[in-house]
């Protein structure tokens, strides 16, 4: 009886939590729409004039374009129609590619950047945790110092410098991999390495710190007093508890990887969301820039939500209280 009501209460709590969070995300996105739309009104340059180029004398064409882009209507009307479009996944028309819907411009990049970030995350998390655990178990030894040295090195070298070095080494000196471009698996190797190294290094250092802390806990002494084999003490009892604080950092790292693709895509000339955003900024293709900003806002909100849900899965103490 008591059990059943507890279950029902839990379920209600979960629904309340989900509703609150989804409402929060919608609110954040609305604010992002207001801000990006507002910012657009203050940027210099008339996009229609840019679009017209040398046909700028053609008044009739100008009027037709203004109507097509909805720029002839009052600001509030433009905003309402933009907001309505966003809700339907329609971000309007691109300025740079005349009469092309923004969502078509985004399609290629959307299939690349989030996937690149996700693959980098999936690879760097186990690698980082593995390295951190390796170092923590050998605390104070040469192996630990060496691992930490490599990890510090990995964090200290800037991304673009490492990129030049890797390209020189593996594409020029020993031509194993292509210098740039996108489409073949070989072309994904260097960009992924560049994304993975800093993420892995960061996770590795955190894992070592958290694990050394957890290993001092009383329940680790209990696990040893039970006569558990050392790998069970480390992986089952200690590492499992580091996952709780680690999941926050992993969320942040995922966010970092998503924006990290901006640099990597530019270096390797990959047609992802990052290069698209940068080109669109230079081409004053504001509808595309706005769409990218909104997409990233959505990504970050979802990552945050994901981390919070993960907390509940990883730590039974959080399950009920949230």
């Amino acid at each position: 009886m008591h059990h059943v009501s507890l279950r029902a209460a839990t379920l209600r709590a979960v629904w309340r939590f989900a509703f609150r969070r989804v409402f929060g995300i919608v609110l954040v996105l609305f604010v992002a729409v207001v801000l990006t739309f507002g910012a657009l009104q203050y940027v210099p340059g008339d996009p229609i004039l840019i679009l017209l180029g040398d046909q700028s004398g053609d008044v009739e064409l100008e009027a037709r374009l203004r109507a097509e882009y909805g720029l002839d209507r009052p600001l509030t009307e433009q905003f309402v129609s933009y907001l309505g479009g966003v809700l339907r996944g329609d971000f309007g028309l691109s300025f740079r590619f005349a009469s092309t819907p923004v969502k078509d411009v985004l399609a290629t990049g959307l299939a690349i950047s989030p996937v690149l970030a996700l693959v980098a995350l999936v690879l760097s998390v186990p690698l980082g945790i593995g390295l951190g655990t390796f170092a923590a178990r050998r605390k104070g030894t040469l192996a630990d110092s060496l691992t930490m040295f490599v990890l510090v090195l990995g964090i200290s070298i800037p991304n673009f410098a490492l990129a030049s070095f890797l390209v020189y080494l593996f594409a020029v000196r020993v031509p194993l991999l292509p210098v740039a471009g996108w489409g073949t698996p070989a072309q994904a190797v260097l960009p992924l390495v560049l994304l993975i190294v800093p993420a892995m290094v960061y996770i590795g250092r955190l894992t070592r710190t958290y694990l050394l802390e957890v290993l001092q806990e009383d329940y680790i002494r209990t696990a040893r007093a039970k006569g558990l084999r050392e790998h069970l003490v480390i992986y089952r009892h200690a590492l499992r508890n580091t996952l709780v604080p680690l999941s926050t950092s992993i969320g942040i790292i995922f966010g970092g990887l998503l924006s990290g693709t901006f640099v990597v895509e530019t270096i390797f000339n990959i047609p992802g969301l990052g290069s698209l955003a940068i080109q669109s900024v230079f081409a004053r293709d504001y509808p595309v820039v706005m769409a990218v900003v909104l997409l990233y806002t959505l990504f970050y909100s979802l990552i945050n939500l994901g981390v919070d849900l993960l907390y509940g899965v990883l730590d039974p103490r959080i399950r009920l209280s949230s």
Binding site: E217, D218, Y219, T222, A223, H237, N241, V244, D315, P316
Partner: peptide, 9 residues
């Protein structure tokens, strides 16, 4: 310490 001697997870 019965509070901290059991693994919380």
């Amino acid at each position: 310490e019965p509070m901290s001697s059991l693994n919380p997870v």
